[in-house]
Design a protein around this nucleic acid. Structure first.
Lengths: 149, 149
DNA sequence: TTGACAAATAGGAGTAAGTCCTACATAGTA
DNA sequence: TACTATGTAGGACTTACTCCTATTTGTCAA
């Protein structure tokens, strides 16, 4: 899957173009971070990327890696895995339901939907893994943040 | 939505029964934590529950709240919001895709599925909120953890 | 090509959220 | 009612950032 969209060189060239378009300075650190992220298929966190990039830039700081990954996700150069980076959150609702989360205020809204409950797990996943839960996760801006903020 | 399944008293009675069934001692702290969780529709984290429960038990510790919520989710008295409680994880894949996450090793696997891409956002959500992303999140045990561990 | 300057970085301090440890307390039972 | 496994409080520790400030560096304009 990770080769569907071209070689590393192509990816890096697209990365440079995107940075220029969005007014982001192209620094060796950013290139190294982007390269490491796009090589990994582990959905790494900042610490993991930091450990790898440090092999090339021993003086890079974790803060730089953290900020850079954040910047990438804000500018749609990468995305952040939904709900990650939040404290453990608990839900007393045990019935099948789905989540909408506001990316601004973090509020999570439960909703029910029969069509979503009925989605099927692809056969190839079902044989390979033991599926224990399935849920549709929507993200966006909630009504409050849209109006008042 | 939070009243669909009966009054607070009914919930608490069911809670007591479940605890007994699973050999969990019924302590005043656990009752207070459960009550607070089931009153909230905020998907609270341990700190928030702690702040509330402290109003009734000023000496309760955050550790107790934390452990108790963890216990509740292990015994299916509550659930933990998927991916929460993990460090921010980043994904270089910007194409529509979905996530399977192993609840044992934390590994996240991307997969593509046209049916999942095609799911529609319910009209009432679409008018109320601005939907920016949608994804199916599956959870379970991955092939590695099933066999080797 | 060279400044100038806004943006980015390094390194250290600070913070949030949770987990570990151990002595003490108590719910459930016999 | 007394015993014991289970649970709790409080403090130390850990992880993963996030903030701050001085220094450095891409980029643009002359």
């Amino acid at each position: 899957m990770d080769t569907r969209h071209g070689s590393t060189d192509e990816k890096l060239e697209r990365f440079r173009v995107t940075c220029r378009e969005r007014g982001l300075k192209i620094t060796p650190q950013r290139i190294a971070i982007y390269r490491e992220l796009s090589h990994s298929n582990q959905h790494p966190n900042a610490s993991r990327v930091y450990e790898e990039v440090r092999k090339i830039f021993p003086n890079i700081s974790l803060d730089t890696v953290s900020r850079t990954l954040q910047t990438f996700s804000e500018l749609d150069i990468a995305s952040m895995v939904e709900f990650s980076g939040e404290a453990k959150r608990f839900d007393p609702n045990l019935d099948p339901h789905h989540h909408f989360r506001c990316i601004q205020c973090g509020h999570i809204i439960d909703f029910c939907n029969d069509d979503y409950d009925a989605i099927e797990v692809p056969a190839e996943l079902q044989t390979k893994y033991t599926i224990l839960g399935k849920r549709v996760c929507l993200e966006g801006i909630c009504d409050r943040c849209k109006t008042g903020d």
